[in-house]
């Protein structure tokens, strides 16, 4: 019985400590919170000003993240969700779990994106990446790629966000001809991987000439590995965008902190962390500009992106079209 007062005392202390430093729980995907991702620097920067404790809760990738938000529902401990993909925002908005973010729109997106619930924090174009030393003349369009006998690796739209991005890319560029393009691409596809990392790893091992990734992928090899052999091929149809967004959960118990965090995420300090940790473009280019090396990347002239609603209604049919065309 002697332990009882002690336990009570400890419990009091714990509550006191909790009352002193509020906790902001940020739900995000794995590689955001990893020690080499943007998470740690953003946590440090935000904690320096907020007088709070920022904690990350992680869930696989962008799709897994939304699944977790839905699993937890209104009872979630999380306050902010960071890392949803624009192709899934319609689904996310439909859950009714998100609240308006109230932040000014991002400044450096190649398209206008002003969604009341979702705030972009980084973006890049999808692109086929190749090795300049092995492929001298890359195709100049999706159609030219389909007509060539080059081998490509792509991701499955049923399990990965880049895979879904490519399906949307073909749909946005070719509309009703999408199935025909997929039919022509079928003999180029070495295999379809469950996620980005398998495809990219296999490309680096020499399993294919090109891999579906991002225009910013070569920046990793150039800056982190001092290797300038990788490049993204510019395509005439334009490039589909991946825009990663953050949102505030309606059920948050720290609404003021959540707002402060979203404001910080859009600030120069946080945006400057993005390019060399997430290897994407910041949603608002910081005053100091982009890191050296990013100027070597291709700049597609035309950007393609369905609105959240369009993407939401098109998704199921476009994936089915992809599946039928490739299963022949």
């Amino acid at each position: 019985m002697k332990t009882l007062p002690l336990a009570a005392g400890l419990a009091c202390l714990a509550t006191l400590a909790a009352a002193e430093t509020p906790v902001l729980t940020v739900m995000t995907y794995d590689s955001f919170a990893a020690e080499w991702g943007p998470g740690p620097a953003i946590e440090k920067g935000f904690e320096a000003t907020c007088g709070c404790d920022l904690r990350y809760v992680t869930a696989g990738d962008g799709a897994a993240l939304l699944a977790r938000v839905q699993l937890e529902g209104a009872g979630s401990d999380a306050d902010v969700v960071v890392g949803l993909d624009t192709n899934l925002t319609a689904l996310a908005a439909g859950t009714g779990l998100f609240a308006p973010h109230g932040q000014p729109p991002a400044k450096s997106l190649p398209v206008t994106f002003d969604h009341p619930l979702f705030l972009p924090f980084d973006w890049s174009w999808f692109a086929f990446v190749y090795d300049k030393t092995k492929l001298a003349a890359p195709p100049a369009s999706l159609e030219a790629l389909a007509a060539s006998d080059l081998k490509i690796l792509i991701e499955d739209p049923r399990s990965s966000t880049p895979g879904l991005g490519l399906v949307m890319w073909v749909k946005a560029a070719y509309g009703d001809r999408a199935a025909e393009i997929w039919g022509a691409l079928a003999d180029n596809i070495v295999t379809v991987t469950p996620g980005w990392s398998e495809a990219y790893g296999m490309f680096l091992e020499g399993e294919a000439d090109m891999v579906l990734s991002y225009t910013t992928s070569p920046a990793y090899h150039l800056i982190a590995e001092k290797d300038d052999s990788k490049a993204a091929a510019p395509f005439a149809e334009g490039h589909y965008l991946q825009v990663e967004v953050a949102g505030k959960l309606a059920a948050t118990d720290q609404p003021a902190l959540a707002d402060a965090f979203l404001a910080y995420l859009g600030s120069d300090a946080a945006q400057a962390v993005i390019p060399e940790t997430n290897w994407m473009y910041p949603a608002s280019t910081p005053a100091a500009g982009l890191p050296k090396g990013f100027e070597t990347l291709i700049q597609p002239e035309k950007s393609l992106l369905f609105s959240s609603e369009e993407a939401g209604t098109l998704r199921a049919k476009a994936v089915e079209e992809w599946q039928t065309a490739l299963a022949k």
Binding site: G60, A63, L66, A67, L91, D156, V192, M202, L326, A327
Partner: peptide
Amino acid sequence: FAVALTLGGGPKASTLELAIYQALRFDF
């Protein structure tokens, strides 16, 4: 799941586990 999909060469090689993954992750 991963082996079948990665080496299967395309959506012809989909397994039940992939269908479960899709149902849980993308379609909820």
